[in-house]
C-alpha cells in the first residue's frame, strides 16, 4: 500500500520536473516580475500615503476641513449617484436583450457597447461641449432658456455617464449568455410573470457580477478626470469633483493637500480591488469558465 503511494508521489514529482524550470530561472523570473511591479505599482501606492502624511495626521485631516474639498466630495458623490443607476438600468436591459434573445445585429451591438472605452476621455468631454456649449448645436437655445449644461452639474453627470456606460453591461452579458435561458423559461411555464422570472431567477444568478459592475463603475465615475475636466469649467466649490480638486491643489503647490485628497481616491480604488477579489472567489466555483478580467472583451478567447 505505502509503496503504491510512494510510487504515485514519485510519478507526480517526475511529471512536475518535466514542466518546471531550473530554480535559478524560476527565481530570476519572480524577481523580474516583482521588481517591475514594485517600480510601477508598489512604490506609487506607498508614495500616495507617505506624501499625504508627510506633515502628520493633523494637517492630513485638515485637508478635508476645507469647504472646497467638502464641496468636491459632495459633487463627486452626487454625480456618481446619478450616473451609476442610469448605467445600471442600461446594463441590465442590454444584457437581458442580448443574452436571452437571438436577433440580427446582436454582435454589432456588443461591439458598440465598448466604444466609450476606446475613446480618449478628452474627446468624451469634447463631444458634449460641441453639443451643449455656447457655440454648440443647442447652445444658443439653452442660453435663451437659461439652462446650463456645460460648466455645470448636468455636463459633469453626462460626461461621467458616457465614460462608465459599458462597465455593468460587459460584466453581465458574458455571464448571462453562459447561463442560457432554460431557468427563466421553466419559471414562465410554472406560471411566473416575466418580472417574477427576472427578480426570482435571473437576479439571484447574476447578483455578484451585478454588484461588482456597480462597484467598478462607481470607482470609475468618482475617479474620472479627463472627460469631466473638459466640461467642468473648474469653478472652485461649485463644479470641481475630487480628481479636479487634486489637480488644483497640486498646481497650487499644496502637495500635502493634493495627496490627502488623492489618498481618499486611492482608498476607493483599493476597496474596489478587494471587492473584485472577494466576488471572484465567491463566483469562482459557479463560473470557473467565465473570464472576469476587465480588460478582455466579451467573447474573447480565454
Amino acid at each position: 500500500m505505502s509503496t503504491e503511494i510512494a510510487a504515485r508521489v514519485k510519478n507526480e514529482e517526475w511529471k512536475a520536473s518535466l514542466t518546471s524550470e531550473r530554480a535559478l530561472v524560476r527565481w530570476a523570473l519572480i524577481i523580474a516580475a516583482l521588481g517591475y511591479l514594485t517600480l510601477f505599482l508598489f512604490i506609487p501606492l506607498a508614495a500616495v500615503f507617505t506624501e499625504a502624511l508627510k506633515n502628520g495626521l493633523e494637517s492630513y485631516f485638515a485637508s478635508f476641513q476645507d469647504p472646497d474639498a467638502l464641496a468636491a466630495i459632495r459633487l463627486t458623490v452626487l454625480a456618481a449617484s446619478l450616473a451609476v443607476p442610469l448605467n445600471l438600468t442600461f446594463g441590465v436591459a442590454a444584457a437581458w436583450a442580448i443574452a436571452k434573445f437571438e436577433f440580427v445585429g446582436k454582435q454589432i451591438l456588443i461591439t458598440l457597447i465598448d466604444i466609450p472605452l476606446a475613446v480618449s476621455p478628452v474627446i468624451s468631454g469634447l463631444i458634449y461641449v460641441l453639443l451643449f456649449g455656447a457655440q454648440g448645436w443647442v447652445g444658443p437655445w439653452l442660453a435663451e432658456h437659461d439652462i446650463k449644461i456645460i460648466f455645470a452639474l448636468p455636463g459633469i453627470v453626462l460626461a461621467t455617464t458616457f465614460v462608465t456606460v459599458p462597465f455593468i453591461a460587459r460584466e453581465l452579458i458574458p455571464l448571462m449568455q453562459s447561463q442560457g435561458r432554460e431557468e427563466e423559461e421553466a419559471a414562465l411555464t410554472l406560471g411566473a410573470s416575466g418580472w417574477q422570472a427576472f427578480t426570482r431567477v435571473t437576479l439571484p444568478n447574476i447578483k455578484w457580477s451585478l454588484l461588482y459592475g456597480v462597484i467598478l463603475s462607481n470607482a470609475r465615475a468618482m475617479g474620472e478626470f479627463g472627460a469631466v475636466s473638459v466640461v467642468s469649467g473648474h469653478i472652485r466649490g461649485l463644479t470641481n469633483t475630487l480628481p479636479l480638486h487634486v489637480e488644483i491643489l497640486y498646481n497650487e503647490y499644496n502637495a500635502v493637500g493634493a495627496f490627502a485628497v488623492a489618498s481618499l481616491l486611492t482608498l476607493l480604488a483599493i476597496v474596489t480591488l478587494i471587492a473584485k477579489t472577494m466576488i471572484e472567489r465567491k463566483t469562482a466555483s459557479s463560473r470557473s469558465a467565465h473570464d472576469p478580467a476587465w480588460s478582455t472583451q466579451p467573447g474573447s478567447p480565454s
Binding site: V48, P121, M222, E224, F225, L242, V246, E247, A262, S295
Partner: peptide, 9 residues
C-alpha cells in the same frame, strides 16, 4: 490597480 486608480492620482 491602474484600472481602478483615478488617473489624476
Amino acid at each position: 490597480l491602474p484600472f481602478a486608480l483615478p488617473t489624476a492620482v
